[in-house]
Deep mutational scan, measured.
Amino acid sequence: QTIHNGDQTYHYDNPEEAIKVAQKLAKIYNLTVTVKGNTVQVH
């Protein structure tokens, strides 16, 4: 599972963990989380 947060990319073995982290980032920075296959984008 990969999270793209602007210019930063994070890799997680656990998809659920990746989505949790993405949602935390989204709340902190007031962003949107988009899940596309194995990629979670925060923008």
Rank of each mutant, 00 (worst) to 15 (best):
Q1W: 05
Q1R: 08
Q1A: 12
Q1K: 10
Q1T: 12
Q1H: 12
Q1G: 11
T2S: 11
T2F: 13
T2M: 13
T2K: 10
T2I: 11
T2D: 12
T2R: 08
T2G: 11
T2Q: 11
T2L: 13
I3D: 11
I3P: 10
I3R: 08
I3G: 10
I3K: 10
I3F: 09
I3T: 11
I3W: 11
I3V: 12
I3A: 10
H4W: 14
H4D: 08
H4Y: 12
H4E: 09
H4L: 10
H4P: 09
H4Q: 09
H4R: 10
H4V: 09
N5A: 11
N5V: 13
N5K: 12
N5E: 10
N5C: 15
N5L: 12
N5Q: 12
G6A: 11
G6W: 14
G6Q: 11
G6S: 10
G6T: 10
G6C: 15
D7I: 15
D7T: 15
D7G: 13
D7Y: 15
D7L: 14
D7P: 14
D7A: 13
D7W: 15
D7K: 12
D7C: 15
D7N: 11
D7E: 08
Q8R: 15
Q8M: 14
Q8E: 08
Q8L: 13
Q8T: 13
Q8H: 15
Q8P: 05
Q8N: 08
Q8K: 14
T9F: 15
T9D: 03
T9G: 03
T9M: 11
T9K: 05
T9A: 05
T9I: 15
T9E: 08
Y10F: 11
Y10K: 02
Y10R: 03
Y10E: 01
Y10P: 01
Y10D: 00
Y10T: 02
H11N: 05
H11K: 08
H11E: 08
H11V: 14
H11Q: 08
H11G: 03
H11T: 14
H11D: 04
H11L: 07
H11W: 12
Y12T: 03
Y12E: 01
Y12N: 01
Y12S: 02
Y12R: 02
Y12P: 01
Y12A: 03
Y12G: 01
Y12K: 01
Y12I: 02
Y12Q: 01
Y12D: 00
Y12C: 15
D13T: 10
D13K: 14
D13Y: 04
D13N: 13
D13V: 07
D13A: 14
D13F: 05
D13L: 09
D13P: 10
D13E: 08
D13I: 07
D13H: 07
N14C: 10
N14L: 04
N14W: 04
N14V: 03
N14M: 03
N14I: 03
N14P: 03
N14K: 04
N14H: 04
N14R: 05
N14Q: 03
P15A: 12
P15C: 14
P15D: 06
P15F: 07
P15I: 08
P15V: 09
P15M: 09
P15S: 06
P15R: 07
P15L: 07
P15W: 10
P15Q: 08
P15K: 06
E16D: 08
E16W: 12
E16H: 07
E16P: 02
E16V: 06
E16T: 07
E17T: 14
E17A: 09
E17D: 09
E17Y: 07
E17M: 13
E17G: 02
E17F: 07
E17L: 10
E17H: 06
E17S: 06
E17K: 07
A18P: 01
A18I: 02
A18S: 01
A18W: 05
A18K: 00
A18H: 01
A18E: 01
A18V: 01
A18T: 01
A18R: 01
I19D: 04
I19F: 13
I19K: 12
I19C: 14
I19R: 14
I19T: 07
I19G: 04
K20Y: 12
K20A: 13
K20T: 06
K20N: 06
K20D: 05
K20C: 15
K20S: 08
K20G: 03
K20L: 12
K20R: 14
K20Q: 08
V21T: 05
V21D: 03
V21N: 07
V21E: 09
V21I: 09
V21G: 06
V21H: 09
V21Y: 10
V21C: 15
V21F: 14
V21S: 06
V21L: 06
A22R: 01
A22C: 12
A22T: 01
A22M: 03
A22L: 04
A22H: 01
A22S: 03
A22P: 00
Q23Y: 09
Q23K: 12
Q23T: 10
Q23P: 00
Q23F: 07
Q23D: 06
Q23I: 13
Q23R: 13
K24H: 12
K24M: 15
K24Q: 12
K24C: 15
K24Y: 15
K24L: 15
K24F: 15
K24E: 09
K24D: 06
K24S: 08
K24V: 13
L25Y: 03
L25I: 05
L25T: 00
L25V: 01
L25A: 01
L25E: 00
L25K: 00
L25F: 05
L25H: 00
L25P: 01
L25G: 00
L25Q: 00
A26D: 04
A26N: 06
A26Q: 11
A26L: 07
A26F: 07
A26I: 11
A26Y: 06
K27M: 13
K27P: 01
K27E: 12
K27W: 11
K27R: 12
K27C: 15
I28Q: 09
I28D: 08
I28S: 04
I28K: 11
I28F: 13
I28T: 05
I28G: 02
I28E: 11
I28W: 14
Y29V: 05
Y29L: 08
Y29I: 05
Y29R: 12
Y29W: 09
Y29T: 07
Y29E: 06
Y29A: 07
N30A: 06
N30K: 08
N30I: 05
N30P: 02
N30E: 04
N30C: 14
N30T: 05
N30H: 12
N30R: 06
N30Q: 07
N30M: 07
N30L: 05
N30D: 05
L31E: 02
L31C: 14
L31V: 09
L31I: 09
L31G: 03
L31M: 07
L31Q: 03
L31F: 07
L31Y: 07
T32M: 10
T32N: 09
T32Y: 09
T32H: 11
T32Q: 09
T32C: 15
T32D: 05
T32A: 07
T32I: 13
T32W: 10
V33G: 00
V33D: 00
V33S: 01
V33Q: 00
V33N: 00
V33P: 00
V33K: 00
V33E: 00
V33H: 00
V33F: 03
T34K: 04
T34A: 03
T34H: 04
T34D: 03
T34P: 00
T34F: 07
T34M: 05
V35N: 01
V35D: 00
V35R: 03
V35P: 01
V35L: 04
V35S: 02
V35F: 02
K36G: 03
K36Q: 11
K36V: 14
K36Y: 11
K36S: 13
K36N: 12
K36W: 10
K36F: 12
K36A: 08
K36P: 01
K36R: 12
K36H: 13
G37V: 02
G37Q: 03
G37F: 04
G37R: 02
G37S: 02
G37C: 15
G37K: 02
G37L: 04
G37T: 02
G37Y: 04
G37M: 03
N38Q: 04
N38A: 06
N38I: 04
N38G: 05
N38C: 15
N38W: 04
N38H: 05
N38Y: 03
N38M: 05
N38P: 02
N38E: 02
T39I: 12
T39A: 05
T39V: 11
T39M: 10
T39H: 03
T39K: 04
T39E: 05
T39W: 07
T39D: 04
T39Y: 06
T39F: 05
V40A: 01
V40D: 00
V40L: 06
V40S: 00
V40I: 10
V40W: 02
V40R: 00
V40H: 01
V40G: 00
V40K: 00
Q41H: 11
Q41C: 15
Q41E: 07
Q41I: 15
Q41K: 10
Q41D: 02
Q41S: 10
Q41L: 14
V42P: 01
V42L: 05
V42G: 01
V42H: 01
V42T: 02
V42K: 01
V42Y: 02
H43T: 06
H43L: 07
H43D: 02
H43M: 07
H43Y: 08
H43R: 09
H43P: 02
H43V: 06
